[in-house]
Nucleic acid binder design. Structure first.
Lengths: 216, 216, 216, 216
DNA sequence: AATGAATGAGAATTCATTCAT
DNA sequence: TATGAATGAATTCTCATTCAT
């Protein structure tokens, strides 16, 4: 047909790529299949991207870009830690339903295939959130909102670990199955997830020894 | 005599397979390379395993078997929740150093590649721990050791999420990089990790509203 | 106006084609690259030439045309054989420095790629020179200028062989290396080449048995 | 069929490769076609040779190896220059009929495709003959067998040029056509070629100025 | 008429699987 | 029974050619 590739076509190619890479991994996905599914020829794909690897990274970047922009919307503002946490959980729930492929792509780089993506992406992707979360916690500590006997970096790490696992649980097949094993049908209940996770987090950040509670 | 050789050789084959699959993923790993590294012929590999997929699953099963046996050692006994948690964290730290490939294999199935392993393994692998953890928590709730306003299944889920992320952080390239981004050099400090994570968990499981603490 | 541009552009296109074909051969050269280097679109190339093959032949024809015109300048006139030979050698030395691509193109058709060009070009290209050289020699024989016990066609053949090899030695990578292996640094010395080759030719065409010389 | 590749099969593969490369050049030849024609799978070809380039060089080396061994047979011995020349011409005539592909391969590297083979092979291939021929001529000069006012390296160069062109004329399509243009039907007459070329060479190597002859 | 992005057949290369020895 | 060379389908990537703009 020889129609010029529109911006949308190019976006569609990336989305198709993301879907295929998310499903089959960087090695398992097939460039010809992606092109065909996207309704273009392999040739154009190779006109825009030097090789499979470069195309994979383009898909990755798109995914991470979207992820980041979503994160930004939530992360901004001056809410208290738990308010923010709640907002993040809800955003993530809303977001995961449709855009699970982006999160799957993120999951792809966290797994197996060599240190390649570890060194390339970890600092870039995690750096910002790590700083922001740590900052939150430090401030909250100063403000007396949360306990002050902790290392904010570690707590930021645990906090993000929980959110990351939640994301994957909503999006990635294995994690979803696993979540169902743990939570059963309740896993579908978004409200319950919010409330339970918030309870967990609130407590975790609160200073109180067990005795105190019992004394009560 | 041949039997004997084969038994050892078979173990070596599986270990080599695990190493290669852990490094390159199910699609990226090369059967011929694995056989050569293991010092056997491809032919014999195909005598024992119908195809690459079957061999991969054998490697997976071996990995998960080892993981499970380690878990068992720690999970048994009648300790209180946090004591048990501490034991688990320490076991996992010890264990991760040498046997990272088993955990990488676990990580492999949690990522991308189709629903295949999700449906095959999730229930099997996670079922036991889910039940045990949930049981722990329910008992602790009854005993008054921890707060009683929570859903034990969700809390077991969060608890395992944190342990799972810790495992991956110790073993898988991307997660390691990420952990360093969050915790910096302190990530290497096993004692600090134990203490901070225990603080996090202890609090999380403890009932106390922020106000209470402040009133104090 | 467009016509004018096209005429220049066309020449540039052919020259670019010649350079690329000379460097990479008919199969190795890339039509898209040629068009880009020539500053035109592939489309226009295909407007003028049915396909790569036709374009290659156009480049070839241009090359051979230039070669022929150079030859004409030298071949004309009524000089004696060796005077003519000297003029030819010098012309060829002068000419080879800048226009090596034309000679490389000539070399391209003499090599490997099928009988295609053999049948197409040999008679056309070589016919004229063969006739002229043979005529020279026949006349010189009649005039008593050179020995008369030879077959003029064979001697014309040997004569042209030597000139052809000299051309290639000045222009084509392999032949140049080879000439250096034989002549060392002296290969660069144009005067020595002229004088030695003329000695060789003069003798070759001269009737004298070895004995005569020795008697002397 | 999965039959082990015999030595002969491997030789056949190389011969097929030589035929295809000789016909289509390094870029034009098709590895899959070569394998099929040789009656093996592409797989084995790539087991034995890293890539097309390596396989091409193997074909080249085989060709040059054969060429060299033929040369050796003739070059040895203590004959006088022209006796040796005659032997060489005859060997070359005999040899060219069947083994034209080896010479075509030689021709392939002398043409077009970049300096790659020029730098790789020229010194190696031409070095030996250059030294031997030059040595011959120097000795003949000392012995008073040939004129002593020449540069032996240049004369060795011209001598080899003539032999090389003869080879190509017997084997390579274009050169054959060209030879026919020059010599007509007589080109087929091996005896005449020997006698005319020897006359040419004998004279060329003999000292006698034109005047001498005329004085007569 | 000119452009150059798009096309897709075709070529190089890999690797899961087979089977003669 | 074990071997590992051989197989060839499948995959990545190229580039001559087309045709919408």
């Amino acid at each position: 047909m020889l129609k010029k590739l529109t911006e949308e076509k190019l976006a569609e190619l990336l989305e198709t790529g993301i879907a295929e890479f998310a499903e089959n991994g960087p090695t398992g996905a097939n460039v010809n299949v992606i092109a065909k599914k996207a309704g273009i020829s392999v040739g154009v794909l190779y006109k825009y991207y030097e090789n499979k690897e470069a195309f994979f990274q383009a898909c990755l970047n798109r995914s991470l870009g979207v992820l980041e922009s979503v994160l930004h919307d939530v992360i901004e503002g001056e809410d208290k830690l738990l308010v923010r946490a709640e907002k993040m959980i809800r955003a993530l729930q809303r977001y995961s339903k449709e855009n699970s492929n982006y999160i799957k792509m993120y999951n792809v780089i966290t797994s197996g295939n060599g240190k390649k993506y570890a060194s390339l992406y970890a600092a870039e992707i995690e750096g910002m959130t790590a700083k922001i979360y740590t900052g939150f916690i430090e401030r909250a500590m100063k403000d007396g909102d949360i306990r002050n006997d902790i290392n904010p970096r570690f707590f930021a790490f645990f906090f993000d670990n929980l959110l990351m696992m939640l994301q994957f649980s909503y999006c990635c097949d294995y994690y979803t199955e696993r979540a169902k094993v743990y939570c059963g049908e309740y896993f579908q209940d978004d409200e319950q997830m919010v409330s339970e996770l918030l309870k967990f987090l609130e407590s975790a950040f609160t200073f109180c020894r067990t005795e105190v509670v019992h004394k009560k």
